[in-house]
Design a protein around this nucleic acid. Structure first.
Length: 478
RNA sequence: GGCCCCGUCGUCCAGCGGCCUAGGACGCUGGCCUUUCAAGCCGGUAACGCGGGUUCGAAUCCCGUCGGGGCUGCCA
């Protein structure tokens, strides 16, 4: 079996995770069967198509690792993979269809068509039963495909098995707009035929359009592809995933600190499973096992919590050096300039501790902020919760003394000194150390204290401890 | 309204007639570990929409019903 599949997003908006999931399944199917994965740009809607969105599509696909064998930029044996370059070809097909009696011009007014639809609806019939070839021949307007009314349309869907649409339920749909541009149905079908697409794998929202595509294909004298309709992605409210559910563009997740590996893994689990036990698996493993037989029929809710958990898993699995490198841009943003050698070595020292704690790579910036400022901004909630009573002053001053006298400034030495503070003050770790944590990192939630102090260095640490002590002294009440 | 699809824990997925007193994961939750937070480890919570069949036996097959969704455009 020669597998040729495609994804044909339209550049009318940012690449949507729903489309990405379809792209992913197509890609997995192609790779599993050693087939060809095609990226086509469906820009038949000239009004709304924009170059920036095409760029977003390509960079998103590349980021996720969905490389295409044929298509825009990489080319291929079928000429242009941008539909706006192929309007002449679509025109030719339209002319042939008209010539063969499969299509006709229709210049009826929108009002009249509305009337016909309403009439059908009132009679409880298919909404478009009356939208058929009129008796009087037109020579301008839109071109409609003339749907044969005598036979049901049947096809086998790889996900949904036998599909059957009764005769008469498909309207004479528009294939060429009055401005001469092709509609989606036409362009997509012509391309699938011309590019010899073997399997059309797409969202279930196109399931009821499939009869149109099959009819068109046959009218062109070609054999229809094998179809597979994927379950839709829902938002938490059980409706088709859309902007009102928050971020739906791949770009937003990319910018939000998600790793492509995690996104890939998570998306592949929406409607498919590796086996009954495994949740985390590699791209290669997915390719090896993927098959459309195993695709679920039910819609899937896009669960950001699970994605985030998975992202954390992937972050922790990165080799420590790689993690630091991947976090480097965030540090640069945090600093406002490329890190100096000493700033970088401070970060690299702390990096493994941060790696364990973040779920999103973007959290690294905020979490390491305290390492790079002269004076920390105290998180007021932490301050007011921890710096109460007499003990913080005691803990801070005793700690300052012990740390000042300390010989080596190492994690182990710092720990010993701080344990001595507890001994001397008779405070428990919570009482004795949390004030130090707030003083040094600005927050009661932070990376481990000894390591933070070690990375910060003695002068920085002592400075912060005294700043906090001074602030306590200035406060009328503890 | 019409056509089409779908219906297992809150969510994603396993289950394709007996292995199911329904399994894994996220979430939620109890505990352990512990310098906070994470991470990790151990435990718990929670589902076959409903009603009929078929069968010795149904989450698995059939019918109905209810529920959800998609489409119904000169958008894709």
């Amino acid at each position: 079996m020669t597998v040729r599949v495609r994804i044909a997003p339209s550049p009318t908006g940012l690449l949507h995770v729903g489309n990405v999931r379809s792209a992913l399944f197509n890609w997995l199917f192609a790779r599993h069967h050693n087939g060809t994965f095609v990226l086509r740009i469906d820009d038949t809607d000239v009004e709304r198509s924009e170059q920036q969105y095409e760029d977003d599509i390509k960079s998103g696909m590349t980021w996720l690792g969905l490389d295409w064998d044929e298509g825009v930029d990489v080319g291929g044996p079928h000429g242009s993979y941008r539909q706006s370059d192929r309007f002449d070809r679509y025109r030719d097909v339209v002319d042939e269809l008209i010539g063969a009696g499969h299509a006709y011009y229709d210049d009826r007014s929108p009002e009249l068509l509305d009337e016909l639809r309403n009439k059908a609806q009132k009679e409880g019939k298919h909404p478009n039963v009356y939208i058929r070839r009129p008796d009087t021949e037109a020579t301008s307007g839109v071109v409609r495909f003339s749907v044969p009314q005598d036979a049901p349309i049947e096809f086998f869907d790889l996900v949904r098995d036998e599909m059957r649409f009764e005769a008469g339920v498909v309207d004479d749909f528009v294939i060429l707009r009055s401005n001469g541009t092709p509609t989606y149905h036409l362009a997509s079908t012509v391309d699938d035929v011309d590019y010899e697409i073997s399997h059309v794998i797409r969202g279930e929202d196109l399931l009821s359009s499939t009869p149109k595509h099959i009819l068109l294909t046959r009218a062109m004298g070609a054999d229809p592809a094998t179809y597979a309709h994927l379950p839709l992605l829902f938002g938490p409210d059980g409706k088709k995933l859309s902007k009102r559910h928050g971020d739906t563009s791949l770009k937003a997740y990319r910018a939000g600190g998600y790793l492509p590996e995690a996104m890939f893994n998570y998306l592949s689990l929406l409607g498919w499973s590796y086996d009954s036990e495994t949740t985390i698996f590699s791209v290669d493993q997915a390719v090896e096992r993927f098959d459309l037989e195993g695709v679920s029929k039910n819609p899937a809710v896009f669960d950001v919590d699970k994605l985030q958990w998975m992202n954390g898993e992937y972050i922790r699995a990165i080799p420590p050096d790689d993690f630091a490198q991947r976090a480097r841009p965030l540090i640069e943003v945090e600093l406002g300039h490329p890190p100096t050698e000493s700033e970088w070595s401070i970060f690299v020292e702390m990096s493994p501790l941060l790696q364990e704690r973040v779920k999103l790579i973007t959290e690294v910036g905020e979490m390491s902020r305290f390492l790079f400022v002269d004076d920390v901004d105290f998180d007021e909630q932490s301050w007011s919760k921890v710096m109460i009573g007499e003990t913080p002053v005691l803990a801070l001053s005793v700690a300052i003394r012990h740390l000042t006298e300390l010989g080596d400034w190492t994690v182990a030495a710092i720990e010993a000194a701080l344990r001595a503070v507890l001994e001397e003050t008779d405070l428990n770790p919570r009482k004795g150390w949390q004030p130090l944590r707030v003083a040094v990192t600005g927050s009661q939630v932070s990376p481990p204290l000894f390591e933070s102090m070690a990375a910060l260095g003695r002068p920085g640490t002592l400075h912060r401890l005294s700043v906090a002590l001074n602030r306590l002294a200035d406060e009328p009440e503890g």
